[in-house]
Design a protein around this nucleic acid. Sequence first.
DNA 1: CTAGGGTTAG
Length: 589
Amino acid sequence: MAMYSTMQIAGVSPDSFTFLYVLKACSGLPAFETGWQVQGQIFRHGFHSDVLVQNSLVALYAKCGQIGYARMVFDGLYDRTVVSWTSIISGYAQNGEPSEALRIFSEMRTCNLKPDGIALVSVLRAYTDVEDVEQGKSVHSCVIKMGFEYEPDLLISLTTLYAKCGQVTVARSFFNQMEIPSVILWNAMISGYAKNGFAEEAVGLFREMISKDIRVDSITLSSAILACAQVGSLELARWMDDYVIKSDYRDDVFVKTALIDMYAKSGSVDLARIVFDRTLDKDVVVWSAMIMGYGLHGRGRDAIDLYYAMKQGSICPNDVTFVGLLTACTHSGLVDEGWELFHRMRDYGIEPRHQHYACVVDLLGRAGRLDQAYDFITNMPIEPGVSVWGALLSASKIYRHVTLGELAAEQLFLLDPHNTGHYVQLSNLYASARKWDQVGRVRLLMKEKGLSKDFGYSLIEIKGKLQAFRVGDKSHPKYKEIFKELEELERRLKEAGFVPHAESVLHDLNYEETEETLCNHSERLAIAYGLISTSPGTTLRITKNLRACVNCHAATKLISKLVNREIVVRDANRFHHFKDGFCSCGDYW
DNA sequence: CTAGGGTTAG
């Protein structure tokens, strides 16, 4: 742009090539004013009907997030080429409006214009974003018909389509077709695995890249870090961090954000904070990731403090920031603070989404304000969804409020009939209220519907290795020792006066539990194994895929005191730190 | 030398 000014001062007239170069140079600049300036120059020099220049301008506006201006330029074109259409289609896709992109694509087809490879890439992206595999497949057959099947660029698009829609095996077959996959193809595959819960595969592929000495970029790292976050091993997290520090992308803001999230999800909010403090030019996403991390660990006060520090730094919160704040408040019993923050959202022009409403119901519900929670739901401006009713059901379970629980369950069975979790929650609610006949009725209902309860398991990390334990698991080579330790623990717990609750009893549909002795079976095994496998003073880090129940909390608190160890338990939602008979979220349950 | 695309974070 500076060069262009110099040229003007020198009195040299620009031609269409000049503008193409100028526009290309501007695409990296975020300021759309640049596009505006360039457009003025284009008009002044009479290139407003040059289709090449105008196409370029459409793409530039779209990249700056100014899709409205892009559309204006596009609408002003009287001789549209495939490139013009592709520019506006990809523009809408890039700006989060894939449906509009697809609408324009069908409009293009009515003009009898044949899409080329690049046009199909843009259309595939739009179908990927709306997660419509079926329509994506029809584009795929179109790709085959046109003979673009082996084009590397289309291979990337197809890999992304199938990977993002959960068909990772299909995606992998495309990946395997390339003899020498480009970095983008590697990235598409790694992020596809990571986003669909195939964290091990994602990490494996990343390791393969390293071992083959293939150059990674910041996107590879971000995706691999996301995968590590899902694995949840602190040792793996440290290894990843170490790799990043030695790479060229140690200061990349995307990479940093992913690292903060990874450490928080791997159990160390303090290491997350260290990465956070070392991040320069923190944007709202970085702050939100850290706030979310505190929320995950029940450190609501720290989350709120960070929120004020963020505003001090003139960073404006967004919808995700509030999700983090609200969950942080919920996990630490800061009911009034959470309620207040929820009502501050509109001050920032943020319209609460389902997730925010669900957070508030959770916030009120866990504090025992069930009627207020229900009242809140009935006054919602949007139709309450699964997350909202789910939060009400779990709160009803905790406080044994059968009527509200049944009401929530009824909605959940309508909205989400095949989700086993809701039935289990309802059954546990009945169990907590000693309505054993109703417990049996729910079990029967589940059997009728052909639903089965997945076996819960807990994971424990010992020296970087994750070990899974299932209910009554005897497959471990050291199982005799583990069971012996477990007996010893139970004996000491009884001595200490631990009285188990007869709640949360539905673990196996074919087995009638009436009482649970300690915490969940799988978790007790993990703790027992941890006690015999780690040296005293080591923190025990346990991940479980079940919601923690009252028993787990009471028992784990007591165990941490008895054995004088810090025990960290992660359930589906968050971490609980137990130390000396104290839990990070207090007795707030 | 000549326009458009594909992979990242909370």
